[in-house]
C-alpha cells in the first residue's frame, strides 16, 4: 500500500502481528518513521520490541500486517491479490537499505575491522575494492577507530567491536539504521563511546530506530520515544513530554523502576 501519504516516510509499519507458536508476541504494532528521525523503543523485556525491530528487515517473518521501508513492502509481495513471501534476491536487496546493529555485534571474527566494513560494499554492491577501502577508512575514523583497521575483532574491546559493527552497517549507506540494544552486552565503562557515536549519527540526520534501555541516550538523541508493552505500543511522544509526564500507568511504572 504505497499510498502518496506514506511515500514521504522511511518506515511504515501497519498492524504488525507476530506469533512464535502459541505465543502472540506482536499484537498489531503500527509505527511511522520520518526521514531524519530518531525513534527510541523502550519497554520491559518480552514486550516485543526486539522482535518488532527484527521484523523490519525480515529477520523474522510477520504473520499479518505490513512493513514498508522507503515505500517498498519488506519481505512480501502481492501475488494474485495475496501476500506471498518475496524472493531471496528481493529480500536481500531490500536489506541493503536497512542497517542492523546487533546486541552482540556479530562481527565476522575471521576478518579484520576493515575487511568487515568492506565485505558488503564489495561483494553485495560491487563497489571497487580501492574505493570501498577508502570509504571504510573514513567510516572507521568517524567511529574513532582509524588506528584499529587491521585488528581482528577478537583483539578489540566490546565497545570497539560495536563501533566497527556500526561502521559496517553505515558502509552500505542505508536509508534506515536499526539498533537492537546496542549497549546491553557492553561493560558499563564502554557504553558511552558507543552511545556517543550513535548520538552523533542522530544529530547528523541519520534515520534510526533504537531499541534501548539507555534512558539518558533516549532523552538526548531521540526525536520520539515509543513505549511497548505486551506486544503493543502503549504510548509515544517527544522525549521531554514522554519522560516528564507519561500518561499510561505501565509507562509510569516502567520509568519509575528504570530511572
Amino acid at each position: 500500500m504505497s499510498t502518496p501519504a506514506s511515500s514521504g516516510l522511511v518506515m511504515r509499519a501497519v498492524e504488525v502481528h507476530k506469533r512464535f507458536g502459541r505465543q502472540h508476541v506482536l499484537k498489531g504494532v503500527s509505527l511511522d518513521v520520518m526521514p531524519g528521525e530518531t525513534v527510541c523503543i523502550i519497554g520491559t523485556s518480552g514486550s516485543g520490541k526486539t522482535t518488532f525491530l527484527r521484523c523490519i528487515n525480515h529477520l523474522e517473518k510477520i504473520d499479518s500486517g505490513s512493513i514498508e521501508v522507503n515505500g517498498h513492502p519488506i519481505g512480501y509481495r502481492k501475488k494474485n491479490g495475496k501476500l506471498v513471501e518475496d524472493s531471496q534476491r528481493n529480500i536481500a536487496r531490500q536489506r541493503t537499505e536497512i542497517g542492523f546493529v546487533f546486541q552482540r555485534f556479530n562481527l565476522f571474527p575471521h576478518r579484520t575491522a576493515l575487511e568487515n566494513v568492506i565485505e558488503a560494499p564489495v561483494h553485495v554492491r560491487g563497489v571497487a575494492k580501492a574505493q570501498a577501502i577508502a570509504e571504510a577508512e573514513r567510516l572507521l575514523a568517524r567511529v574513532g577507530l582509524g588506528d584499529k583497521k587491521d585488528a581482528y575483532p577478537g583483539k578489540l574491546s566490546g565497545g570497539q567491536q560495536q563501533r566497527v559493527a556500526i561502521a559496517r552497517s553505515l558502509a552500505m549507506k542505508p536509508a534506515l539504521m536499526l539498533f537492537d540494544e546496542p549497549t546491553s552486552a557492553l561493560d558499563p565503562e564502554v557504553t558511552g563511546e558507543v552511545l556517543d557515536v550513535m548520538e552523533e549519527l542522530a544529530h547528523e540526520g541519520t534515520t534510526m530506530i533504537v531499541v534501548t534501555h539507555e534512558m539518558g541516550f533516549a532523552k538526548r538523541a531521540a526525536d520520539r520515544v515509543v513505549m511497548m508493552d505486551e506486544g503493543v505500543i502503549i504510548e509515544e511522544g517527544p522525549p521531554e513530554h514522554f519522560f516528564e509526564s507519561p500518561t499510561h500507568e505501565r509507562t509510569k511504572a516502567f520509568l519509575s523502576k528504570i530511572l
Binding site: 529477520l59 536489506r95 556479530n106 553485495v124
Partner: peptide
Amino acid sequence: DRGQMEAAKSLGMRYGLSMRRVVLPQ
C-alpha cells in the same frame, strides 16, 4: 553462531554468499 548468518543477511548477502564468505570459512 546464528548471529553470523543474520549479520551477513542484514548486510544484503544472500544465502550462498553468506555461506561462502562468512559461515564456511569459520
